[in-house]
């Protein structure tokens, strides 16, 4: 059982078509969801540790603005936006995927980012400036791998053709932009309402 927890994502990233098929039709959904959350957590952890402990030559950051909570947000919010946007679009476009399946396939696709970036946090401290090429090569490889897995996962989960998947992915990115815009609108409106109410309260309180 415990071996299975590790073996499944590792198998999935090497054999994505089989892995995502299993995810959709064969596997226990509850287990996949737990696994997904674990991967999200691990990715957040990798990013936080990477920000803090990566070698100076690959990681210049302003420590005054370092915020672990924001690092988690940078992982969780895009994934959430992606899932919501993708789900909203694919329900209209005859996709077969449920929200849970979209979520788990997306999170499992993030596995290479954890697997490759985590060891590099420490290895990058042992590099000279010329050798940082290896670092940047592997991190970009991780991103490309992730994008490929995302593509395969999306295709399998919705049972789309490759071309349709690419189209959906592009539309999803557009929809993510819309969602972000709406969120900003919503928050700024809320802020103004809250400010308005506080001002009214202050006016009333200071009348005496």
């Amino acid at each position: 059982m415990s071996k299975e927890w590790v073996r499944y994502p590792l198998g999935l990233i090497l054999h994505p078509f089989n892995g995502f098929w299993d995810l959709k039709y064969d596997r226990d959904q509850k287990q996949s969801v737990i696994l997904s959350f674990a991967i999200l957590l691990l990715l957040s952890l990798t990013n936080i540790l990477g920000r803090q402990y990566s070698g100076f030559l690959v990681n210049i950051y302003d420590s005054r603005y370092f915020n672990s909570v924001m690092e988690i947000v940078y992982v969780v919010v895009p994934v959430l936006f992606w899932c919501v946007a993708n789900w909203s679009l694919t329900t209209l476009m005859d996709g077969e995927g449920k929200f849970v399946e979209i979520f788990t396939s997306t999170c499992l696709a993030l596995t290479p980012l954890v697997l490759i970036n985590f060891p590099w946090i420490w290895l990058s401290n042992l590099l000279s400036l010329q050798e940082t090429t290896f670092y940047f090569f592997s991190t970009s490889a991780a991103v490309i791998w992730f994008v490929f897995l995302l593509f395969v996962g999306n295709m399998t989960v919705h049972q789309f053709s490759p071309l349709k998947t690419i189209g959906t992915i592009l539309l999803t990115i557009l929809a993510m932009g819309f969602i972000a815009f709406l969120c900003m609108l919503f928050f700024s409106l809320m802020q103004q309402i809250v400010a308005f109410i506080t001002v009214i309260y202050q006016e009333l309180a200071m009348r005496k």
Partner: peptide, 18 residues
């Protein structure tokens, strides 16, 4: 070198240190 954000020289010193 880290304090002065000087990656090039940091790398040189690091190679010697390694």
């Amino acid at each position: 070198f880290k304090r002065s954000m000087d990656q090039r020289n940091y790398s040189k010193a690091f190679l010697l240190y390694r």
